[in-house]
């Protein structure tokens, strides 16, 4: 029963995703919304605003620098979690 529901759900979602592909912008389309709305500014202005030739770095470290702080925190979190789990042990005293 559970399996059957899972099959149906997965198949349904897959079919759904297949069907919707047509609604997305074409690949390689230079006029897609993603290419025309926000990103042109990064390409046009980052040289004068930031002075970086690598637009990705400009976006990563300056325009969206806060995301990068978050991302660094994520990796630090992962480190802390592993240390906490593997180095301090799970043996806890009877409280």
């Amino acid at each position: 029963m559970r399996k059957a529901i899972s099959y149906v759900t997965v198949a349904g979602m897959l079919f759904f995703l297949f069907a919707v592909a047509g609604a997305l912008p074409q690949l390689y389309d230079p006029n897609s919304p993603a290419a025309r709305h926000v990103s042109p500014r990064y390409i046009e202005k980052s040289h004068e605003e930031i002075g970086s030739a690598n637009y990705v770095t400009a976006v990563l470290a300056d325009y969206r620098g806060y995301d990068t702080l978050g991302e660094t925190t994520v990796i630090f979190t992962a480190g802390v979690v592993t240390v906490m789990l593997l180095r301090t042990g799970l043996k806890r005293k009877k409280l």
Binding site: A34, R64, G70, V74, I75, A78
Partner: peptide, 24 residues
């Protein structure tokens, strides 16, 4: 478009971190 690249650097790192924790 540079924006998805910048975003996906973050997503890759997230994926890496999740995997690390999961392996632990």
């Amino acid at each position: 478009n540079p924006l998805p690249h910048a975003l996906m650097l973050t997503a890759i790192v997230v994926s890496l971190s999740t995997t690390g924790v999961a392996l632990a």
